[in-house]
């Protein structure tokens, strides 16, 4: 299982920086100018096989179809709701895409302003028009618990390799945690534990660049919540 990471050091690059001049292909967030690959966002230089690109450090969430996201209802129409999913544009949720039979004009009985919802991105078209659905297993209105907002670019860090970070968080804090690809995270559990889980998530966001982050987060949670049972590393539930 000792798969060495392709990226050597975490080299921070900014837009315009030359990523490669030896003939590699541009990966994500990179472009070619005069035969040289350059960065188009600030982030970490990332080499994958013959391509070089940038993993962004910040930036706005752009939905991709299939993403699971958490959003908040910000407007209600007679046959749809507008959901803020942290993208540049609100996402319309049509009455045909919810698990209930909703009469025309009766939308607010089912979902009100400020309600949080777990959705899936159905499609994103050429002009970035988004469609979302609540018709899939697990998708629902979310009630209780806490919502934490982090940068969507740090979501992969919260989940980490095959979910190791997130399952550790869940196990150690005994919380239910749902991570939206858009950086919205829902945490539910006993008050004190949820507090610690929220702090730990914020810490992951802040220290995403740090080495041995999993170990540091583990220590942090242990210092806050003395673990009664032995923490089991292999429980890979999602």
């Amino acid at each position: 299982m000792e798969k060495r990471n392709a990226r050597q050091t975490r080299e921070i690059v900014v837009p315009g920086d030359i990523l490669d001049g030896t003939g590699m292909k541009p990966g994500e967030n990179a472009y070619v100018l005069d035969g040289k690959v350059r960065a188009s966002v600030m982030g970490v230089r990332n080499v994958f096989q013959n391509t070089v690109g940038v993993i962004p450090l910040k930036g706005c969430y752009m939905p991709t179809s299939g993403d699971t996201v958490i959003g908040v209802i910000v407007d209600i129409g007679p046959s749809n709701w507008l959901v803020d999913i942290g993208a540049p544009y609100p996402a319309p949720l049509h009455v045909n895409e919810v698990p209930w039979k909703v009469e025309f004009g009766d939308t607010s009985r089912y979902l009100g302003m400020g309600n949080a919802v777990l959705l899936k991105v159905l499609s994103v078209d050429e002009s970035k028009k988004i469609q979302v659905t609540m018709k899939d297993s697990g998708l629902r209105k979310i009630e209780g618990g806490r919502l934490v907002k982090i940068s969507h670019s740090k979501v992969s860090r919260v989940i980490d390799k095959s979910g190791s970070m997130i399952s550790m968080l869940k196990n150690m804090t005994d919380c239910r945690i749902t991570v939206g690809q858009n950086g919205m995270i829902w945490v539910d559990g006993d008050d004190e534990n949820a507090d610690v889980a929220v702090l730990a998530i914020k810490m992951i966001e802040e220290k995403a660049q740090a080495r041995d982050l999993t170990e540091k987060i583990k220590e942090f949670i242990e210092s806050k919540l003395p673990q009664s049972e032995e923490y089991d590393d292999d429980e890979g539930e999602e």
């Binding site: 908040v72 209802i73 910000v74 803020d84 009100g112 302003m113 400020g114 309600n115 949080a116 979310i142 009630e143 209780g144 618990g145 806490r146 919502l147 829902w186």
Partner: peptide
Amino acid sequence: EIMSEIKRDH
């Protein structure tokens, strides 16, 4: 700005 009900309750 619309605040989530969850945050308000919290």
